[in-house]
Nucleic acid binder design. Structure first.
Length: 561
DNA sequence: GCCGTTTTCGGCCCGACTGTTTTCAGTCG
């Protein structure tokens, strides 16, 4: 549905429709993408209008999609506008106006024709088009691979950007430094890594930045701004800004764009104009600048909005009312409920190493959930004995005897109920056949009286495969009915349930286990990324299962209730 | 097309950069 509305907006834009209609369609599409529940069902019940950004017209169009598969207005435009013309807009430097003129005034309808026209220098016949534009178009068309670049993972970018922030803080004369942009909001992937800073001598700091040891290439370098590429291919942007408006700038460069637009729209209504330089009271001309983001939100009449929530997904309304949730923090975790050891073929650290590392993180327990395949018969008993020995030595720290079982293609589990009954924590996960009734298989596993939690529920792998097409509403309902928990798996390429889904789970009343799925000691730290996604999901400490001690948590499982 | 801490009608974020221009439109973030 979201795709159809985005396509409709693109085509209307080519026709020169009023920009606010396009914004409305695109906003509605974004809402659809964010929603974990069924907007189609809401629309059929006449209740999609309750979602901010969806009104009567868009609700009707959603119903059209449900009933006929497509939006009438979209079908009309698709018949009228050659499909490639919408692709012209995606070329760098070309927007809707230029794309429409290439088609209307030069009769160009395909990317091949565009390439030919640019090569033959025919584009410069159009007012406003010159040699540089032709060259840029040809470059973009030649570079088709770069059209959809892979977005690197937060798990790779976050440590990198925090290291850069730390390195810049070491520089003499530097005042404040922070990561900004999507990485500060802890979005699961990013395009580039933004850092902003204040310094007595901005030019010296940007110079220092471009000369850091790991910098492979300097893409841009001015007195207050520089872009570099690291030796592992990540793009870093540094901006040095004046200290008196550091708070305004940090807020601006943290985004999201949608959050900032909504913030500014609301400000306009009360006579304020917000930009990265300050908050202008239009009537008096008075400019509010601040070093502190907290002061900025306060000045605008909001509770401080944690960066993870700044997606224009209801956070401004809640902050206006003072009703933002107290988000879960890394320090709230008492243990980890998904980990592996050398008992699994892919585990790299021994049980003892894992236990000591978990203890060093301040945990009071660690569930070891080695793969069921490696815990058959006598190996299961042998591991149990080893865990018992370790627990005697490490008490009060506790290794919890867990297991990660496979949900087979036919829905059965690959471990007998009898063996499961002997484990203290049972995780059931999909690892294969993601297109074979994934919802039914998960629901079946939840019915099992020994299964405590569903691991990485959609089984997606970022940049590799989409998640299985699971009906989350039914899974949430079954979780509540059976007392089964769901995981927020913190592996950088999983983050599953993802932020928007985890939020829906939380709203449904389901508790989530934020787990590292660590296969070696260092990977226990992945829980930090997982917590950042839990925060993006608006979750409080109480909504995260493993903020509890093991005895507290145990009382909440189905086998003890 | 949506929406209301003025409004059910009349607004709708803000600034920088680029390429093409002699004052700006389009694009980008």
């Amino acid at each position: 549905m979201a795709e159809q509305f985005e396509r409709l907006a693109d085509l209307l834009e080519l026709e020169g429709a009023e920009s606010f209609r396009l914004i409305a369609y695109r906003r509605a599409a974004q809402r659809m993408r964010e929603s974990a529940g069924s907007i189609a069902e809401l629309a059929l019940a006449g209740r999609a209008k309750e979602i901010s950004g969806i009104g009567k017209t868009i609700e009707e169009k959603i119903v059209q999609i449900v009933e006929s598969g497509t939006i009438e207005a979209l079908a009309v435009r698709e018949a009228r506008i050659p499909p490639d013309v919408a692709l012209f807009m995606r070329l760098p430097g070309l927007g809707p106006k230029s794309a429409a003129r290439l088609w209307r005034e030069l009769g160009i309808t395909t990317l091949d024709e565009l390439r030919a026209a640019a090569t033959e220098e025919r584009l410069r016949a159009l007012q406003g088009f010159g040699a540089k534009t032709e060259a840029r178009i040809l470059e973009a068309l030649a570079d088709t691979a770069a059209a959809e670049p892979v977005r690197p993972l937060l798990g790779q970018g976050l440590p990198a950007v925090l290291a850069v922030v730390a390195a810049l803080r070491e520089h003499p004369g530097v005042d404040l430094v922070s990561e900004a942009g999507s990485v500060r909001r802890r979005r699961e992937t990013f395009r580039d890594l933004d850092v902003i800073a204040t310094a007595a001598d901005p030019a010296a700091l940007t110079e220092h930045f471009t000369r850091l040891a790991w910098v492979e290439a300097v893409a841009a370098h001015g007195p207050t701004k520089a872009t570099v590429v690291s030796n592992d291919g990540l793009r870093f942007d540094l901006r040095v800004v004046p200290p008196e408006s550091y708070g305004n700038l940090l807020q601006h460069f943290t985004g999201s764009k949608e959050h900032n637009v909504a913030l500014r729209e609301a400000a306009v209504r009360v006579g304020l104009s917000v930009s990265e330089y300050g908050v202008l009271r239009v009537e008096s001309g008075e400019l509010f600048r601040t070093r502190s983001e907290e002061a900025l939100y306060d000045h605008l009449g909001y509770q401080f909005v944690p960066p993870e929530l700044r997606e224009n997904a209801g956070e401004l309304e809640a902050a206006r009312r003072g009703e933002l949730p107290a988000l879960v923090e890394v320090g709230d975790l008492r243990g980890d409920l998904h980990s592996h050891s050398t008992w699994s073929a892919d585990g790299k650290s021994t049980l003892e190493e894992m236990a000591l590392a978990a203890q060093a993180r301040g945990y009071s327990y660690l569930a070891v959930t080695d793969h069921s395949h490696y815990l058959r018969e006598e190996r299961l008993d042998a591991q149990t004995a080893e865990i018992d020995r370790l627990n005697e030595r490490l008490a009060p720290f506790r290794l919890v005897k867990g297991i990660e079982v496979n949900i087979r293609a036919d829905g059965s589990l690959d471990v007998s109920d009898e063996d499961l009954a002997g484990r203290e924590w049972v995780l059931a996960s999909l690892h294969t056949a993601f297109d074979r009734s994934p919802t039914e298989r998960i629901l079946g596993a939840m019915e099992n009286p020994h299964v405590d939690c569903i691991g990485h529920p959609t089984a997606r792998k970022l940049n590799r495969r989409r998640g299985a097409d699971v009906d989350l509403d039914r899974i949430f309902a079954k979780a509540l009915e059976t007392g089964t928990y769901l995981e927020l798996n913190s592996q950088p390429d999983r983050l599953d349930l993802r932020d928007t889904h985890a939020r829906a789970a939380g709203e449904a009343g389901v508790l989530l286990a934020v787990s590292s799925d660590a296969h070696r000691t260092e990977a226990l730290a992945y829980a930090e990324i997982g917590v950042s996604q839990a925060r993006r999901a608006w979750l409080t400490r109480g909504q995260v299962l493993n903020t509890r001690t093991w005895p507290q948590l145990r009382k909440l499982t189905k086998r003890d209730s």
